[in-house]
Design a protein around this nucleic acid. Structure first.
Lengths: 194, 194
DNA sequence: TGACTGATAATAATTGTTTTTTGTCAATAC
DNA sequence: GTATTGACAAAAAACAATTATTATCAGTCA
C-alpha cells in the first residue's frame, strides 16, 4: 500500500512540475505519464479525471500558503504585531508567487473561480489560523472579542483584496503592502482592549 | 453644438441597449450605427475607437451605482445606520445588477480587469461618498477619526468582497448580505466614539 | 463649412476540418 | 490477483480557409 501511495505522490509531483512549466491547460496526462515512466491509462487508476489530478496539485500549493500563514501566527511577538505581519506576509507571499509564476496563478484562479472544494477548505484553514492569533491576544489581554471565530471570519473577508489571487493580480504594481498595513492598523482599533 | 452632443448621447444610449442585449463582444459598431440611422464611419467622428464607445457606456452604468451610493449616504438616519446601509445597499445593488444582466457584468468585469481609467475614477468617487458619511459622524459626535479620507479608503478596500464585480459574481448564491452586515458592525467598533 | 458617407486596407472572428486528448476496458505481465 | 498496459471511442483542441469587423479617408451633401 505504501508503494501505491508513493506512485501517487510521484504523479502529483511530476504534474506539479509540468503545470508550473506549461500551465494546466497545456500539460496533458500523456506528458505526466511519460515523465513518470508509465502509461496514461495508469494515471487514471489514481485519479478519476485530469481535473482531480490538477486539484491534488493545487492542494499542495495551497498547503504551502497555509504553512507560511502558520509560521507567522506562531511567531513569538505580541498578537497585534502578528496581525500586522499576517496581513502583509500573506499578501506578499501570494503576490510574489503569482507574479513570479503565471502558470501557478492561472491554475489557482481557475480553482477559485470554479469554486473547487479545496478552496473552501483552504479558506476555512486560513480563518482558523488567524483565529489562533486572536485567541492569543484575548488570553494575554491585548484584545477584547466576543466571538473569536466570527471575528476571524469577518477580518479575513476584509482582507480579500490582499490575498485573493484575482485581486492580487489585478492590483499588481501598486503598493498594496502599504494598504495592507493601513487595514491592519484600522482593524486593530476594533479589537484592542482599552 | 447641442446637436452634436445630442447625436453623441443617442449613440451611447443605443450602444448601451445593444450591449445589454448581446454583450460588448458581439455588438459591432455597424449594429450601433444602423440603430442610429447612420453610417459606421460616423460613429468614429464621436469615438476614436470601439473601446472608447464601450467605455462611455460603462461610465453611465457606473454613474448609476454612484447615484445609488449617494442616495444612501444622504439619508436622514444616523451615520452608523448609514454605514450599515451603505455596505448592504451597495452590495445588493451590484449583486442584483450583475446576476440579472450577464452582459453588463461581463463588460464591467472587463473594465475592472483591464483597469480602464473610468474604474479608478469610480473608485475615488465611491470613497468620497463614503467619506461624507464619516464626516457627518465625526461632526455629530458618533465617530472619532483622525484621517477621514484615509479611513474611508481603508474601509472601502475592506468592502471589496461585497462590491467588486468579480467577487460579487464569484460568491453569488451565498448570503453575502449577512457577511456585509457583520463587517459593518465590526468596522463601526473601530471608529465609534466612546 | 461642418455633418456625414462609400469604398477599402488591416485586423480579428467564425466556420468547418483534421489532429490531439481524455477516459474506458478487456487483455497482459509479474 | 494486483499493477499495468494497448487499443479505442467520444470529446476537445488546433489549424487553415473564409467571412466579418474595425478604423481610415478622400469625397459628397445640405
Amino acid at each position: 500500500m505504501s508503494v501505491m501511495e508513493d506512485t501517487r505522490d510521484r504523479i502529483v509531483a511530476s504534474a506539479s512540475a509540468q503545470i508550473q512549466r506549461h500551465g494546466h491547460v497545456k500539460t496533458t496526462v500523456a506528458d505526466v505519464a511519460k515523465h513518470c515512466g508509465m502509461s496514461p491509462a495508469n494515471i487514471y487508476r489514481f485519479f478519476p479525471t485530469k481535473a482531480a489530478l490538477i486539484e491534488a496539485v493545487s492542494e499542495i500549493w495551497l498547503a504551502l500558503a497555509e504553512d507560511n500563514a502558520r509560521a507567522i501566527a506562531r511567531q513569538p511577538s505580541c498578537a497585534s504585531a502578528r496581525i500586522r505581519e499576517f496581513l502583509v506576509g500573506v499578501h506578499e507571499f501570494n503576490r510574489d508567487r503569482y507574479t513570479r509564476n503565471g502558470e501557478v496563478h492561472e491554475t489557482v484562479v481557475a480553482a477559485t473561480m470554479e469554486r473547487w472544494p479545496i478552496v473552501a477548505r483552504h479558506e476555512k484553514v486560513i480563518i482558523s489560523i488567524f483565529a489562533s492569533i486572536l485567541e492569543d491576544g484575548v488570553r494575554n489581554g491585548e484584545f477584547e472579542i466576543d466571538d473569536i471565530e466570527g471575528t476571524a471570519s469577518v477580518m479575513v473577508a476584509a482582507m480579500v483584496k490582499f490575498h485573493n489571487p484575482i485581486m492580487v493580480a489585478q492590483y499588481h504594481g501598486e503598493s498594496l503592502t502599504e494598504q495592507a498595513t493601513a487595514l491592519s492598523d484600522f482593524m486593530l482599533k476594533a479589537i484592542r482592549k482599552r
